[in-house]
Design a protein around this nucleic acid. Structure first.
Length: 214
DNA sequence: TATCGGATTGACT
DNA sequence: GTCAATCCGATAG
């Protein structure tokens, strides 16, 4: 077994569009009072730049909520959606350029990881993948909420951190339009969602996914 | 201050 | 397939 290692900061200095596929296969580590949970990122979405109408920071909208998106890459952007679910983003890119990658699905790396995640999910039914096959679900399973907004993700010993996992160029990565952003006009059609093809934890399989070529 | 609606989910028809 | 839960951010007034 390889020594766990934080992911390369250079990956997080890229734009969201470049970083989103590269985050697939990487390891997300969450430490709670109950123990450490390790999981693999299997689905992401890019929200990048002032011109992306789907992004909270569209038009360089700089508010209390979006402020963390303007920081240099390497911290978490966690927001509350529909009054009841948290969503986790990885802020990437240069300072003052709002770039973030939404983590939409993760897969527990071991049975003990799965058990801890299960304990954090209140009601739960159906197939195992329902544990964390969606942005709100994975935040429940990993006990992530807005108290972690702005948290640094590349710090050894951090309670939420990114470690290197599988290399993206060895994975069957596909891309397709993002989910639930009808308000974004033509930007709702951009193929800025990425996932590991065939992975059971992917939230929604696209009808016509395109192979991603790094 | 008031209003609108959301980068979702689970329950139900 | 439909729909409501439930809070707060963004915007209008």
């Amino acid at each position: 077994m390889r020594e766990p290692k934080l992911i390369s900061p250079s990956l997080l200095a890229r734009t969201a569009l470049a970083a989103a596929p590269l985050l697939l296969g990487q390891t997300l580590v969450r430490v709670t009072e109950e123990g450490e949970i390790r999981c693999r990122i299997v689905e992401t979405e890019s929200y990048g730049g002032a011109e992306d109408r789907g992004s909270h920071a569209f038009g360089n909208r700089r508010t209390n909520r979006t402020e963390v998106m303007f920081a240099a890459g390497g911290i978490a952007y966690v927001y509350l959606i529909y009054g009841m679910y948290s969503c986790l983003n990885v802020v990437v890119g240069e300072m003052d350029d709002p770039q973030a990658v939404l983590i939409r699905a993760v897969e527990p790396l071991s049975e003990s990881d799965q058990e801890l995640m299960l304990r954090h999910r209140g009601r739960f039914s159906g197939k195992a993948a329902n544990l964390s096959n969606g942005p709100g679900k994975l935040c429940r399973a990993l006990r992530i909420d807005r108290s972690l907004n702005g948290y640094p993700l590349v710090r050894a010993g951090g309670v939420l951190r990114l470690e290197s996992g599988d290399a993206a160029d060895e994975l069957p990565i596909v891309q397709c339009p993002r989910i639930n952003i009808d308000y974004a006009g033509e930007y709702a059609l951009k193929p800025w969602r990425f996932y590991i093809d065939g992975n059971p934890y992917v939230s929604v399989k696209d009808k016509h996914p395109m192979p991603w070529r790094g």
